[in-house]
Design a protein around this nucleic acid. Structure first.
Lengths: 354, 354
DNA sequence: TTTAGCACTCGGGGAAACGGAGTGCTAAAC
DNA sequence: GTTTAGCACTCCGTTTCCCCGAGTGCTAAA
């Protein structure tokens, strides 16, 4: 059976009606919506064909049709129109992304919340580091007799600092010396290499000096570790409940539980890096909890060495056109923002020591 | 009508049974549970009294009784036994709080998640600054020709940094000079005073120097602003759905919506600072969304100048004994952790610049 | 004051009945 | 060959009804 133009129009009408109303679509309704000047009986025949082709499904004998996963897939690939963002929408996104100086992690978090609000669906976001990050340089700042601030800067220009307390006190020249050692022996190394170098140093240096060095180096190792750690954030999980397919709690709970479990369960959602936008429809998701759920993801760049993925989670009956449009604009904005960018970059930040 | 000892035992039995099962409690069940050697008929009489006194309620004529808000209140104030934490529980809390160096805000966030997991209820947490925070000192570190790192340390020993780019380049002595000006004229001031001082300086200094100064000072102002801003985090909102009173979505949604709305709606939950532990039962909550909900909150200290409040949200049928025990241990641990503390303090951290 | 006995109330749950939307098929019309 | 009108049929969601049982409140006896 071949896919005539008319069948496509009918499929499209059904998908879009179902997206809008969440109700199975009957032949009569299609007759109107598709703008084809034929009777409902004709439509019925076509719909029977489409069902046979696996593009539509019937919840039960005497209900209208709903799109199947493959039906959605065809729609997304071929039928879906470009959704134009209104000025208001782009404005809204831009405003929302106008963030104050914040730390990377928090920017990601905020971005997720914003997107979730914009899209009316839950959102997850994660980051990953492309290559190995190393320390480019150390700076040590005396604070008082028995404390100094260690400032660590990576080759990706991330700067972190920590107050280090030393019971015994330390003179300015000693600090200078320490700084020299750190900058000469503990830069440009991977975490493992740093640990090794530290171990080696343990033998031929005074215990006092070694303790100081190791405190700073360990901090540096943690910083690098933190950067490499793939973090997952989720936002707006509650929004699921606003959609009728999740009004039976049995449907909603497994998914919500899965999404809430950030940190712990790394979201095992594969992202195909060869494309900027990934769409997974229903059973295309490997994960059990996502069987009746679609995921639309986009990636963006964070500087040169990191990549972020941000995705929208919703029922298969998702407004793909709208979501992809918004998401892709959103991801582009993030890339721009993190780039040399017009938008203020997520500048440096912070620290705390009680 | 007076509150006899027997009435108390009956009330207690009802509260605890209802907490455990979420089912109205009948006279027969009470007869067994309360350990009083009387018949159900006697209990019935007593229960009628308790109902008249407003301590119990009847969902409908021929159901058992459930505690009213005042019933819970009496229970919490007088009847509730001390719940002992098991070794496992304290262990679990301690383990969970063993956090890596992290920024304050994130520690709070994590703590909320942990507590939520431990208590099976949603948790919110917020921080507030007691007094005004000022900048204690500035350090400027040359990175390259046209960029330096500004390190700002507050009188509460919070350290934050930011990379500042300068198109024109800068020499080491110039940087030195800049640092001197900042440390002499922009320390110990409130945000408003800093803004004023900056304005005043605009007139009698060269435009180039002024631009640099203002970039650093504006950063400092942001840092102070960020510290003072009262932030609210929530965690584990989904857990609500695990409790039978919220299995009808109509009940759950308003509350969940309210809780998800962190950032935006500052949680308007009053905390009585004269006590470490606050319990608000059902209608005692001013807020509409919390009418059928109880909140148990505890405060803890973050260093000398800040205070945090962390609270558990659940149905009025909450296991108050368990929750208060865990919460108070939790809050104590946090205080200890943020204090000079045995547990590692949330050390300094961080920064990012693309 | 406590207890046994008993009639009464009321909500929850299951069975049965109803209505309506939508289908698939057939036969006629184009 | 394709489209259309007509019609019997299916099946779901809803409503109605009825029954059951848990629990009460009252009365009268212990």
């Amino acid at each position: 059976m071949e896919m005539t133009e008319r069948k496509k129009r009918i499929l499209r009408a059904i998908v879009e009606s179902y997206i809008a109303t969440a109700e199975p679509v009957g032949s009569k309704a299609v007759a109107q919506l598709a703008g084809l000047d034929v009777s409902s009986a004709t439509i019925r025949n076509e719909m029977a064909d489409l069902t046979e082709m696996g593009l539509l499904e019937q919840p039960h004998t005497s209900a209208g049709r709903i799109p199947s996963a493959t039906g959605y897939r065809l729609y997304v690939n071929e039928l879906m129109g470009e959704h134009q963002l209104s000025m208001q929408e782009t404005q809204r996104i831009n405003d929302a992304l106008e963030m104050k100086i914040e730390e990377l992690d928090r920017v990601i978090d905020r971005a997720g919340k914003v997107l979730s609000k914009i899209s009316d669906y839950p959102v997850f976001s994660m980051t990953e580091v492309k290559d190995i990050v190393t320390v480019r340089r150390y700076d040590l700042l005396m604070v008082e007799e028995n404390a100094f601030i260690a400032v660590v800067m990576t080759d990706t220009s991330v700067v972190k600092n920590k107050i280090i307390r030393i019971p015994d006190g330390l003179s300015e020249p000693q600090l200078q010396m320490l700084s020299t050692i750190l900058n000469s022996s503990f830069t440009g190394l991977s975490r493992e290499q740093m640990a090794q170098a530290l171990e080696k140093m343990a033998d031929h240096s005074t215990p006092g000096a070694f303790r100081l060095i190791s405190m700073v180096v360990e901090f540096a190792i943690e910083v690098l570790g933190e950067l490499r750690r793939q973090t997952v954030h989720t936002a707006g999980i509650t929004q699921l409940l606003e959609h009728p397919e999740y009004k039976s709690l049995d449907k909603a709970k497994p998914l919500m539980r899965f999404l809430s479990d950030d940190e712990t369960a790394q979201l095992p959602i594969p992202f195909d890096g060869s494309q900027n936008m990934n769409i997974l429809i229903g059973p295309e998701n490997v994960n059990e909890a996502f069987r009746d759920t679609s995921v639309v993801m986009a990636s963006y760049d964070i500087g040169d060495n990191m990549r972020g993925v941000i995705g929208v989670v919703g029922p298969t009956r998702m407004d793909y056109a709208k979501v992809t449009a918004r998401l892709s604009y959103f991801a582009d904005s993030l890339t721009r923002m993190f780039g040399k960018g017009e938008l203020p970059p997520p500048a440096s930040k912070d620290d705390f020591e009680a």
